[in-house]
Amino acid sequence: MEMSERLPAQLQCGAQLADLLEQVSTGQTKALTPHQIECPYCTAALNRLVNSWQDIERLRAEPVQPSPELLHRVMRRIWAGLDDWQVELRGGRGMTRVSTAVLSSLAFWAAAAAPGVRQVFQAQSREVGIEGPDRPKKRRQRLVSRENLRIEIELSIHYGFSALVVAEQVRRAVIAHVLETTGLDLPEVELTIADVG
């Protein structure tokens, strides 16, 4: 690359470099003013700015990839911080447990499919009685008894639907879906209707 003189903020003809640059960066290089057509300073500056801008376009098009380990590093730390709470299911020979994360997902999809529901913001399984600061911080496996299990769902409903009717339909759908999939009869489903639209 060879060096040439830096462009001044104001060209000898009085034109502002910033104005020419605005023209180049917005792709208006064909729409020249009568002055620009005649003026050698503007023409030269525009040519150089177009070249510079092409470099920016090239840089933008350059493929950029983080290392493949990045995703694993992020997820490893997330998994390490998760509690693994499980509920014991009634069954035949041997013990069957289901993670409360599975129950949350089942509740989420059942609620999302219920009539009148616009969007589910979250669905969480909780053990009643140990929330807030008493909740264990470290990842640990523990059994939650069915009696202490509570599903909490936050959602928005479509305008024009009765909140009470939608809530009851969601509650029934969640209980039925969890029962059908896991055999677990949920004692409590708590709903918050956070929005309507």
Partner: peptide, 21 residues
């Protein structure tokens, strides 16, 4: 996002995959 907010780490992993680049 809603699934991830519900504690579903697999859903969050999908979000990371989508947006990491």
């Amino acid at each position: 996002v809603a699934l991830a907010r519900s504690g579903n780490a697999n859903a969050f992993e999908q979000l990371v995959r989508r947006h990491q680049v």
